[in-house]
């Protein structure tokens, strides 16, 4: 689904954010990318999203090289207060991207409402984002991405600015919609949604990921990869208590701290 080879990016001011990143993500996989702050996680994500042209290397999404924003891709940004549009209602925020899909107005609204229901936000469709709590706003951002039915979903520290309880709820929401996305319409031959989740929270990377990729600091490069083989369905209390989870967490933690 996603191929990254020899990716490097240097900004105009000479700052080298990432260097020599190699990463392959299979269709339907949920890969967590974790690393210390300033290790170029966000740069990596921006390059994959086609928001930024890397100075070296090659990225392909679904076998096609990235040149501009790929078609079947959605992003959930960390900063929900800024990525949602305050002048649109919640429903219109979710429906706006569907213009690209060539749907009629009524269909767009219907899909938007369905996506909102999927994230448990029935009944706030007519409100404005700024009337909702932070966790709910981030749910709207997730609903917007889901309604778009992307093949590849990028999440840039999506739960970074909400409180701990909400964060756990949103993690579980992510795990549940991930399964749900297979059933949602779109092209039938497509497998589940592929998700790339950038986070600085080690627990979170293990808890939601099928695989954890550890980046190390400036310039960011892949330090190690760990496969997460925790039983599904995952549960905030049970899973986090498993010896396997504790062991993985410690391993990721060591990898992050090692220079």
């Amino acid at each position: 689904m996603l191929e990254i080879a020899g990716l490097g990016h240097r900004y105009d001011d000479g700052h080298q954010a990432v260097a020599g990143v190699e990463l392959h993500v299979a269709r339907g996989e949920l890969v967590s990318i974790v690393g210390p702050s300033g290790c170029g996680k966000s740069t990596l994500l921006r390059c994959v999203a086609g928001l930024q042209r890397p100075s070296e290397g090659r990225i392909a999404v679904g076998g096609r090289p990235v040149d501009g924003v790929p078609d079947d891709l959605a992003v959930v940004f960390q900063d929900y207060t800024r990525s949602l549009f305050p002048w649109l209602t919640v429903r219109d925020n979710v429906a706006l991207p569907l213009r690209r899909r060539g749907l009629a107005r009524a269909q767009r609204r219907e899909q938007a409402l369905a996506a909102l229901a999927q994230v448990g936000l029935d009944g706030v469709a007519g409100k404005y984002p700024w009337q909702l709590s932070g966790g709910m706003q981030q749910r709207v951002a997730i609903a917007r991405a889901l309604a778009y039915r992307p093949a590849l979903l990028l999440m840039d520290e999506p739960f970074g600015s909400v409180d701990a309880q909400t964060r756990e709820d949103l993690e579980d929401l992510l795990l549940s919609v991930r399964g749900g996305a297979d059933r949602g319409g779109g092209s039938e031959d497509r497998g589940g949604m592929t998700i790339l989740l950038v986070t600085h929270d080690i627990d979170e990377s293990v808890y939601v990921g099928d695989r954890v990729v550890v980046l190390t600091g400036a310039p960011g490069r892949v330090h190690s990869e760990l496969r997460v083989e925790l039983p599904a369905p995952r549960d905030q209390i049970v899973t986090r208590g498993l010896p396997e989870f504790v062991k993985l967490r410690a391993e990721v933690g060591r990898a992050v701290r090692r220079p």
Binding site: A49, L73, R82, S83, F85, W87, L96, P97, R99, R100
Partner: peptide, 27 residues
């Protein structure tokens, strides 16, 4: 205009005109 708002619009495939109409001008 918030760069994140522009990025969102681009990521969700809004073309130049749609970005102007739905994001830049309202913002």
């Amino acid at each position: 205009v918030e760069p994140v708002q522009l990025d969102s619009a681009r990521v969700f495939g809004l073309g130049g005109f749609a970005r102007l109409r739905y994001v830049v001008l309202p913002a």
